[in-house]
């Protein structure tokens, strides 16, 4: 085991801190000075998404790499108790975090909004209707001015009524919309206005000290927000640009492709990548003695770019091909071994 100089560990922590705590882009967001005129509306809707009681039906459609996936959810938010979701027609009732994909990202934390604001311009775009209710439209723009997302926010202090993500070609690739909504009467809410939140990379220094290299960003402005070794022995890396989540799971071993029924294999530079048609755009591949699984609710082009940026050894290494008996062969072949 290589002992690490304290200075190096400090440098690593500073690098992580740079990504976790402060803008990676040139101009830090300042709502008073820049064009993020819609950010306060998103914040209010996020607060309502946690603190205002409501019930409704939510329709979700995701256009993945090669098809669309739709689901209908009954949702009920009970302040202080949480967001309860049931997938129609017969799913179980689950309590979910309203800031998670399962909760339609309806109530992001303040830190998540900061990430959104430093990666995109968030502009108010006038009055509209959604779910049969008056709504404020907020447009989320990339640096080149193209549209990355649209939010329809309830005028009457309710949650996000509708949310769309668009890919780099301007196609709507993800829609979450309330079809009907019953808002509980407004109450004075005690408690935090908005969950402060923050990144969760406390395990990173230990992993770095063990030799892991963790990219703090992936293409598509995806920033590392979570690093965990799960109790089950998998490394989890979470990335987000403020709009979507890309989850990367790494486990040691060799991929048993024969058992991936229902998945289709794609060849790329002699390297096999397995994909399955699903709302999560599931992708699996093996590289260098590890198996990678990526799940995402981001546009397919973003997911593809993220997958491409992760390790791919185009030709299996000798160790992978020969398996665990290889060292004997090599010992024999290499007189210096």
């Amino acid at each position: 085991m290589i002992r690490l100089p304290a200075a190096l560990i400090l440098a690593v922590l500073m690098l992580l801190g740079l990504v976790a705590g402060s803008p990676a882009y040139a101009s830090p967001p300042d709502e008073a000075e820049n064009d993020d005129t819609g950010l306060h509306l998103l914040r209010e809707a996020a607060i309502a998404g946690r603190n205002r009681g409501y019930a409704g039906t939510r329709h979700v459609t995701v256009w993945g790499r090669s098809g669309a996936f739709s689901s209908v959810l009954r949702v009920r938010n009970v302040p202080g108790q949480g967001l309860f979701v049931r997938t129609e027609p017969s799913g179980p009732i689950r309590r979910v975090d309203p800031g998670s994909p399962a909760g339609s990202m309806a109530a992001p934390s303040e830190a998540m909004l900061e990430v959104l604001a430093r990666n995109y311009r968030v502009v108010e775009a006038g009055g509209e209707h959604a779910c049969g209710r008056p709504a404020r439209l907020v447009r989320v723009l990339r640096a080149d001015g193209t549209l990355a997302a649209r939010y329809w926010l309830d005028e009457a202090g309710g949650p996000v009524l509708r949310r769309e993500l668009l890919d780099g070609h301007g196609r709507v690739v993800h829609t979450e919309a309330l079809l009907d909504l019953v808002l509980d009467p407004a109450r004075r809410v005690a408690g935090p206005a908005l969950v402060a939140g923050g990144s969760d990379v406390g395990e990173a220094p230990r992993l770095l000290s063990m030799g892991w290299r963790l990219p703090t960003a992936l293409p598509g402005r995806l920033e590392l927000f979570a690093v965990h070794v799960l109790p089950t022995g998998y490394l989890y890396l979470g990335y987000s640009d403020g709009l979507s989540v890309v989850s990367v799971f790494v486990q040691s071993g060799v991929l048993d492709g024969e058992q991936l029924r229902g998945w289709h294999a794609q060849q790329r530079d002699g390297h096999t990548i397995w994909m399955r048609n699903s709302a999560e755009q599931e992708t699996i591949w093996a590289s260098g003695g590890h198996v990678y699984t990526v799940l995402a609710d981001a546009p397919a082009d973003t997911v593809d770019a993220a997958v491409a940026a992760l390790p791919h050894e185009p030709v299996p290494t000798l160790w992978n091909r020969l398996g665990r008996g290889a060292h004997r062969l090599l010992s024999w072949a290499n007189p210096f071994g």
Binding site: D97, A111, D256, R276, T293
Partner: peptide, 24 residues
């Protein structure tokens, strides 16, 4: 050894993770 990722478990973790929620 040869393995198949527990994708359902991963999907569960993915969809229940709130980014920048403080604790993922």
């Amino acid at each position: 050894g040869p393995r198949v990722p527990p994708v359902d478990m991963f999907a569960n973790q993915h969809s229940n993770t709130a980014p920048y929620g403080g604790s993922a």
